[in-house]
Design a protein around this nucleic acid. Structure first.
Lengths: 207, 207, 207, 207
DNA sequence: TATGAATGAGTCTTCATTCAT
DNA sequence: TATGAATGAAGACTCATTCAT
């Protein structure tokens, strides 16, 4: 019964502005449940009936809130993408050194992958091709913003000699490395999320 | 009309031993085509009819070669996994220094992702959950061998002070970083596959 | 915002007597809009939501005015059928010669098909089978009256040697010929409605 | 179990040429049954399950022969339209006087409406709007041919002073008059089909 | 071994209707 | 009277799989 995205003060504000669905509304509950199911079973293997059952309504009722299954997938992805962009912008604004900015990127990414928004983030990454092309384009617009923030930081780091790999490649490599942690990193294991962040940082910068 | 895996002398031998399907047989052609379609459209969105049509037979005929769609997916994954394991073992045997062994790992992985076996490798990585659990376990057996090779090399590297991150984490992080290259690295772009390998190496090793 | 039937002094009286809905009431507006939509898109392809939306209310609210979609269709048909019957009786009363009476029939029919009540008339003709059998019977009662007026006139004409075809067949043939004009005759084209009436008359009467 | 269109020597040839479905094939049986059901209950109120049941297969099997319900409707309409065009061309070729040509038109039309192809013809006329616009255009191409034959004959008749009403209007009026006979004329009643044809002729020509 | 029609359970989606507020 | 979320039965369509030929 949680939102597909983590509800912090930032998200609170986004919800109030109507950019993200309130988890207390049917729409919000539907999106959160969809995120979980899509992650657990995959988009195609999740049926509208299952989704409805988990939310406690009948399958036909879903269509009061979304016009198609595709729109639900879009909802899950779009909201998490908006939230990530927002969260990263805020985190970067608070960081001063370039090293801290890189850490901010890593922490934000890992927070979304392994925090309350983990389901939506995993869906964003691994069910991308299930989304209709038309809606992929819409999500991509926001997504590009997000990665521009990465590349700016890595460009600065490269200029400072802090990193060896070119900004665009480093972005992609680190993004892949962190995306894959969904499959092996578990919160509460012997490696903490902060420690994981440090390992990723160790890949990015030379000491 | 190619095999799902690249046919070198090693594979030739595997084929002759019956461990991998000959691309000249219906079974081999079916697997190669399935790999491509599963990659392009996703497992669920590929129908048996399409697969049959591309191979030039009728849908009913597929079932003379495979007992189910799941078995085809298994075939694609199992063969590529066997081939990777084989290829890596050979490459490591030829490398002398630990640094070279790391490069061997990276080159082998990238060769499978971006070479002729790219389709099968992408399917292995991104359609994993579409495979029935029972068969996932079978593939996993071989897969574990493969990553044991990685970890042994990274353990040695760590002991030599060549790498900073613990072997098990480094394996996973690099694996993720390289898996993701499917989405952004294109053969014949301004970055060559060898140059890409060097960038990955630069993440792993602090010179 | 018009009634499904044309509001002349006759209809005014019918409205005042409660036999036809006032277009100023929600019921009247609903019927007029339904007539238009049923004609444009067909009964089955018109949804209650669309109908409600066009009238400016919500779908649930319709059911305060009509107990079912079928009742709406009935309303549309019943009112137009009453109005036609009424209009024809009046027109015939004013005609003196048999020829004029035939013209009165033709003009009345064409007026309903191509005038403000055109939507309702088209629905009456072309969505007949969408109406429940029970309500078909109700409409049929009035409808029979209407055609009895036709047959009486054509019987007289036949007796006078004015027409060649037997009354009952001539009624049906002319009715069909005029009903079909919905599909090809457009008000304001090179043929006026009066000229069209003369063409129909020319079929019926051998000068 | 009859074809949607009457199987005479002409149709036999069309079938052999593959332009019309053989009623002995599944496709042909499906079309004939669909024509009957669409006529009896209307296109929208006929379900694929019903259609399948009447043909003796399961609903899913229909989609081996047609890709959608719309394509079935198209099939029914297209084949009857082709057959009408063919039949009329032949009949006109055999008629010598203009009067006989008009009779040929009337007989052909009535034959299609009340003969074995009556179901398909009724569907063509009364379910027109249920057909997708794209496919309407395809049917229209053939349909226009058919009515061009009418207009040519009526133009000749008009020139000869045989008819009073202009060719284009006479075509439409007679077409409407005959289309409507579906609803009131029954084979084997007190009026024979030939006698009905004479009544229609009486409308068209002045003695 | 290949065919291809048929299966039948399952999918997303639609929509008239209900009803608590 | 109006709302609008929810209902639930029904619709068209999909597709891996079967099997007689």
């Amino acid at each position: 019964m949680t939102s597909p995205v983590q509800v912090g003060p930032l998200l609170r504000q986004m919800i109030d502005e109507g950019r993200v669905s309130d988890p207390a509304t049917p729409r919000g509950r539907l999106l959160a449940t969809a995120a979980r199911l899509f992650r657990e079973k995959g988009y195609n293997r999740t049926t509208m009936r299952e989704l409805a059952a988990e939310v406690g309504i009948l399958s036909g009722s879903i269509f009061h809130h979304f016009e198609s299954k595709d729109e639900i997938l879009f909802g899950v992805m779009h909201e998490v993408v908006l939230a990530m962009d927002d969260a990263l912008a805020t985190a970067l604004a608070e960081a001063t050194t370039t090293r801290d900015k890189i850490l901010a990127i890593i922490h934000t990414e890992l927070a979304f992958i392994h925090g309350k928004t983990g389901d939506a983030t995993a869906v964003l990454i691994y069910e991308w091709r299930a989304l209709s092309e038309k809606r992929q384009r819409q999500v991509l617009k926001v997504r590009k913003n997000y990665f521009k923030l990465w590349e700016e930081v890595f460009a600065q780091a490269h200029a400072e000699g802090l990193t060896l790999v070119e900004p665009e490649y480093l972005s992609q490599l680190l993004h892949g490395a962190m995306a894959w942690t969904t499959y092996w990193f578990k919160q509460g294991g012997k490696l903490s999320q902060d420690e994981l962040a440090n390992r990723v940082l160790a890949l990015a910068i030379k000491e």
